[in-house]
Design a protein around this nucleic acid. Sequence first.
DNA 1: CGGTTGTTTGAACTGATTCAATCTGTGTGG
DNA 2: CCACACAGATTGAATCAGTTCAAACAACCG
Lengths: 226, 226
Amino acid sequence: MKHEQIRGIPLPSASELLADIPHQIIEIGPRRAFREAGQMSGNEAIFILEGILSIYKTDGIGGRNILALRFAGESILPHGPTLDLGIKPMIDARLALVPDLDRAVGDHPDLAWIFWRISQRNEAIAQEWLINAARRDTKARIAHLLCEIAIRGGYGEEKMAIPLTQQQMADITGQTSVNVNRVLAEIERAGLIRRQNRQIEFLDWAELRRMAAFQPGYLEADLAGI
Amino acid sequence: MKHEQIRGIPLPSASELLADIPHQIIEIGPRRAFREAGQMSGNEAIFILEGILSIYKTDGIGGRNILALRFAGESILPHGPTLDLGIKPMIDARLALVPDLDRAVGDHPDLAWIFWRISQRNEAIAQEWLINAARRDTKARIAHLLCEIAIRGGYGEEKMAIPLTQQQMADITGQTSVNVNRVLAEIERAGLIRRQNRQIEFLDWAELRRMAAFQPGYLEADLAGI
DNA sequence: CGGTTGTTTGAACTGATTCAATCTGTGTGG
DNA sequence: CCACACAGATTGAATCAGTTCAAACAACCG
């Protein structure tokens, strides 16, 4: 795996990466935190095979304040001990745990390139979320989150079963669940989506994208020519 | 520069990195964009020797929507062509431009480790800004920004000449300049700072930190045991 | 079926925006 | 050294998006 071969092609999937790295597979369900704040061991990496994990920061009680989502095929690399983040599955998840990522990279030095690029993608996503929170109104925020979930979660532009509660969507977009509810209803009234229970059908994806100012470029792992 | 020697110690400064990498030095003044959106060449890296750069995203006119700051000793690594960001100095800046970071990393493979860690630090900062925008009230946002500038800019906890206009602080914290002004006045009235023109004196750093919920851990480049 | 979790709706409230005007500091040219 | 121009800072008044609080309703699960 020389880096000359890596550049300009898509990032390898988690499963491709894992072929080279010692790991163990586990399954977990939602509602229990997987790693509490401060409990993430210094050098552990998590590769998500199935499901969705959230990275959150607690300010007081509860798991409010979701900073990032990680979908199947993505990963959570070690943060270092100074970062006080918790990790919780949003839905049932199957994970591959790499107990010592340092050693793995030591054994396969070209992995550092890949993890660098993964980190850069995460940075780009965090910045997009920052724009969401800082600049867009709540309608655009919710619309943007829907678009991102549809794409990153691999559900496509037709329909999906939202994997989040309205409270979780509020935790992500920095609002109250009350307002998330009202905004979802408003988007539905505008004819862009149809909802029944957790199912969401995208009736007008183009308009939803426009409302969200959703430019999926930031999700492209292929940072060609990094 | 073996990575075994890198881990657990602070990130090398820009100038230390540059010893190994071909680069050119330039100086620029504020008010002109250094790189417009979409104009950042695919593989160029910027190391800031002096001054402060902002990374912004334009939504319409003007340089609103500042996503990140980079201070002296920090760097802007290539984003890939899909990210539409602009770069502008906040104050006079002296930069080292590395035209082809790929080649540099190819020549010194252990650099990938370092850039990986730099990206992770940037990710942590972006997430802290996300918390700021999504969860803290405007007083805390401004206080947090002041703390971060004081530390990252190397000004210390005594006093500094703020390198930003109130409009820029608004662009960073997702507010209006009007409100930034009011909040600054309120913080001053509370006796935490004293202002005259651009000079800010920190009268009660501890209380300012508390108000901001500022935990500088996220700034530590030393992600020991990554 | 009962308990729990999540969703929906209403009414009152408030922090921040918007718009607009004024004030202050700094730099420039005469 | 003054007059002017311009960028930035400050203040006020009206408005509004989103919160808060509270209560009812629906879906899910053992």
